[in-house]
């Protein structure tokens, strides 16, 4: 199943403007609500709290009053992996082929019912984007009424993560097929729940392969370098690991861009 994705295939990606993000949490809740993400009574242990979209809080480490903070929303990065060939860190390690790379969309997809919970993919993901269902998902009596049929609730013992709201892509395709447009989908027809909800308009979503799409215009991905942004204000998280994420960040602030990756002493200054 190796196809290269420079053809007509989509390559869905996301651009998040960190200077616009206010850390309000709408994206997180929009995601939970859209994707039937369960919740527990105590969610303060952030290391076992399922948040497909998680907002990290970064600080520049300077003392008062030179301190600065930045909120960084982190969905699944939908890594293309080394060489952007689809061997994402998580996909390549899954022993049961429960997660794979969609060459037609660039989305790292998953079958929850195939997963048997070895958690290798979680160990492989440097972004902590994958979450394990340590508990049975339980909704307070009656609250399961709001669950969406578009996303199957996961059971205990499996790993889950952001899907770029793939069901919305499916819904858009259903409509397109129905209207005999085959899978010709307009930019606005397929948007993730977080993109739609963000009150600050900090999130942009679209096809990175389509130069007309806003995401391409914002970061100008370099196809010869596995999608590395050509916009100097844009960056990807942990670019140096060659995971080739499809989530890009934009910030005017240098310290924020620097925090996006690891640099040894003096390296950042040189790399600029």
């Amino acid at each position: 199943m190796t196809q290269d994705n420079h053809g007509k295939a989509y390559k869905f990606g996301m651009v998040i403007d960190l200077d616009k993000c206010t850390g309000c949490g709408s994206c997180m809740v929009a995601c939970m609500s859209e994707n039937n993400v369960p919740f527990k009574e105590d969610e303060t242990n952030k290391k076992d709290s399922i948040t497909w979209m998680k907002v990290f809080k970064l600080t520049n480490g300077k003392p008062f009053p030179d301190t600065d903070i930045c909120y960084m929303p982190r969905p699944c990065m939908h890594c293309g992996g080394k060489g952007d060939h689809g061997h994402s860190p998580c996909v390549s390690v899954c022993p049961a082929t429960a997660t794979d790379y969609g060459y037609d969309t660039g989305i790292v997809s998953q079958i929850y019912t195939r997963c048997f919970g070895c958690r290798y993919c979680m160990g492989a993901c440097p972004y902590h984007a994958r979450y394990f269902n340590w508990w049975d998902p339980k909704w307070p009596d009656g609250m399961e009424e709001y669950l969406s049929p578009s996303v199957s609730p996961r059971m205990r013992g499996v790993v889950e993560k952001c899907s770029f709201c793939y069901h919305r892509y499916q819904a858009a395709r259903d409509r397109a097929y129905h209207e005999e447009r085959r899978d010709n989908i307009e930019e606005g027809e397929y948007q993730t729940a977080c993109t739609q909800a963000c009150p600050a308009g900090a999130i942009t979503f679209g096809d990175l392969n389509n130069p007309e799409h806003e995401v391409s215009k914002l970061v100008k991905p370099d196809t010869h370098q596995c999608g590395k942004p050509r916009n100097p204000k844009a960056f990807r998280l942990l670019e140096r690991l060659q995971t080739n994420p499809k989530v890009y960040y934009i910030s005017e602030r240098e310290w924020v861009r620097k925090a996006g990756d690891n640099y040894r002493d003096g390296e950042w200054e040189k790399s600029k």
């Binding site: 390690v93 022993p95 195939r114 997963c115 048997f116 919970g117 958690r119 013992g157 499996v158």
Partner: peptide, 18 residues
Amino acid sequence: IGQPLRGWFIFWHANVHS
């Protein structure tokens, strides 16, 4: 493993890259 009943998937749905 989180789903012992599905443990055999590792053989049945094996991913040779893993």
